[in-house]
Amino acid sequence: MFYLLWGRLSYNPTASEDVWMTELRSRFGDAAADVSTTYHAGRCVVSEIAAAHLADPNMYIWPEINPGGLIADYKDVLPSDQSFIASPAEAVRNVVQNHASAKQGPHETAELFDGIGSQIEAAVSRAGSKLGGNQEWRGTELDLRLPAF
């Protein structure tokens, strides 16, 4: 799916959804829409991790497997989008000083990840109930579930 989307959208950003839905239907039949929903929800996870917690500003990161570093240093890691997301220190200052902020804080970030995870889990469950013995599904299901954790 990555190469199909990357190639098609690079060549023609206005490509019809039918291009990839046809492929998903050929692989997953009636569960194609649920698999598509899972891909769609999962696309936000890595970019949100990098936006909220940029462990290495030189971009030598692999957010999906980064354990977060030492807890004592975790509080000092800045978000990549500091105009939109409050750093841990800023979020704490806002709470202690009872200062309202329009920036995304830790609770909003957690709610965002919970919502994405719920969408992914629901779509994977629906697809799994329709795909039973599909061999490709057995190899794809774990990849689709991982962003939900």
Results as ranks from 00 to 15, higher is better:
residue 22 T to P: 01
residue 29 G to D: 11
residue 65 I to P: 00
residue 67 P to D: 11
residue 19 V to W: 11
residue 23 E to K: 15
residue 60 Y to M: 05
residue 36 S to Y: 06
residue 35 V to S: 12
residue 20 W to R: 02
residue 28 F to W: 11
residue 50 A to R: 15
residue 62 W to V: 08
residue 62 W to K: 10
residue 46 V to N: 01
residue 12 N to W: 01
residue 56 D to Y: 05
residue 48 E to A: 10
residue 52 A to F: 08
residue 32 A to N: 03
residue 36 S to M: 10
residue 59 M to R: 12
residue 10 S to V: 00
residue 56 D to G: 02
residue 43 R to C: 04
residue 57 P to W: 15
residue 37 T to I: 00
residue 38 T to F: 11
residue 56 D to W: 02
residue 63 P to G: 07
residue 35 V to P: 04
residue 50 A to L: 11
residue 24 L to V: 02
residue 16 S to N: 03
residue 15 A to S: 11
residue 61 I to P: 02
residue 60 Y to G: 12
residue 28 F to M: 11
residue 23 E to G: 03
residue 19 V to A: 07
residue 37 T to F: 01
residue 39 Y to H: 09
residue 55 A to K: 12
residue 53 H to W: 15
residue 27 R to W: 10
residue 21 M to P: 00
residue 42 G to C: 09
residue 14 T to G: 07
residue 26 S to Y: 07
residue 31 A to Q: 06
residue 24 L to A: 04
residue 26 S to A: 13
residue 49 I to Q: 13
residue 28 F to I: 03
residue 52 A to K: 06
residue 37 T to A: 14
residue 32 A to Q: 11
residue 38 T to A: 15
residue 58 N to H: 08
residue 46 V to G: 06
residue 60 Y to K: 08
residue 41 A to I: 01
residue 64 E to R: 15
residue 30 D to S: 07
residue 51 A to L: 12
residue 46 V to E: 06
residue 9 L to I: 00
residue 41 A to M: 08
residue 65 I to E: 09
residue 36 S to R: 09
residue 24 L to H: 07
residue 63 P to Q: 15
residue 67 P to Q: 09
residue 34 D to K: 01
residue 50 A to K: 08
residue 28 F to S: 09
residue 8 R to V: 00
residue 25 R to Y: 04
residue 12 N to T: 05
residue 18 D to R: 15
residue 64 E to N: 09
residue 16 S to W: 07
residue 29 G to Y: 03
residue 36 S to P: 00
residue 60 Y to S: 10
residue 38 T to P: 02
residue 36 S to A: 09
residue 17 E to S: 13
residue 45 V to R: 12
residue 34 D to C: 00
residue 40 H to N: 08
residue 44 C to W: 09
residue 59 M to K: 04
residue 25 R to N: 12
residue 60 Y to L: 09
residue 44 C to A: 14
residue 12 N to C: 08
residue 43 R to G: 02
residue 63 P to D: 10
residue 44 C to I: 04
residue 29 G to F: 04
residue 10 S to R: 01
residue 60 Y to R: 10
residue 31 A to H: 11
residue 40 H to W: 08
residue 44 C to K: 09
residue 31 A to I: 01
residue 11 Y to T: 08
residue 14 T to W: 05
residue 8 R to T: 01
residue 33 A to L: 05
residue 65 I to W: 12
residue 21 M to K: 15
residue 31 A to M: 07
residue 8 R to C: 00
residue 43 R to N: 04
residue 63 P to N: 13
residue 58 N to T: 12
residue 22 T to I: 02
